[in-house]
Amino acid sequence: MVDMIDVDHVSKRYGEKVAVDDLTFAVQPGIVTGFLGPNGAGKSTTMRMILGLDAPTSGTVTVNGKAYRDLAAPLHEIGAMLEARAIHTGRSAYNHLLAMAQTHGIPRSRVTEVIDLVGLTDVARKRAGGFSLGMGQRLGIASALLGDPATVILDEPANGLDPEGILWIRNLLKSLAADGRTVFLSSHLMSEIALTAEHLIVVGKGRLIADTSVSEIVAQASENSAVRVRTPDATALRDALAADGVSVRSDERGVLEVHGVSSERIGELAAEQAIVLHELTPQTASLEEAFMRLTGDSVEYHAAAFPTPVTPDLEQVA
């Protein structure tokens, strides 16, 4: 099975700044893969390299086994919507798409089709410069689908959209996936990606942090999560739990947040000591927490590699 997109030991430097650092991953066919990382992690740069817009400083990127530049009909193989606008503000949506279509000999009927599909029919003849953010995103998606490609790349498609627009994007992604298309989708929000993606590529500071399935990432992150216990006899339970590696916190009277021991073990201990429990709930880590934990690690990693950071890295905090 040929990977749709293959990123192989790719680095990209802009002068002294390393945007992408020895990144290796593959996007598998037929599923939605999320590309996740904080702002400034190198996601957009990586996508531009996949699309042949930026040349890697080292390493290779291939699409369907070929460098993007060598594709004879790129719009039919891979459709892309970049985060930054890629349209002349003075041209109408229809004429923009028509000019794109003509490079491949795609007929006008297809242009009308994608315009209807993204719901821009009423404004298709207006200057794109006057489009709202949401309309711009829709036009970007129309461009991506113009050549009816098997692979679609979307850079932060939900960015700046109103709730209705976000819902529209979600439905669109689901329908793309249902068609059996390969979707590669970037976001800095785990919650957004987790709704549609099966697989995740997580990056931080241009480096690969994780290449795993969504369910696995949640399971990993939950391992060290807390258990919430409500009991009328909190002091007795706290004493019973006192052991190495177990920490107990209480922000509310009669409620304990226990780390380092499973809910099963807490139940057993309570039974042995005849302590009444009103509630015993394992706190599953949210996706957002899982993501923060992952990228948090990448900060620590870099802090260890460069022992005396001159300035705090604000990007990673965001």
Binding site: A73, P74, G105, D116, L145, D148
Partner: peptide, 26 residues
């Protein structure tokens, strides 16, 4: 205009759209 506003449906099924390629004339 029968396909308008059909948000939960992508264009024609994959491979149905005509295929072209990049040429200098295009």
């Amino acid at each position: 205009m029968s396909t308008a506003v059909a948000t939960d449906r992508t264009a024609a099924a994959p491979k149905a759209a005509p295929r072209g390629r990049v040429t200098q004339a295009n």
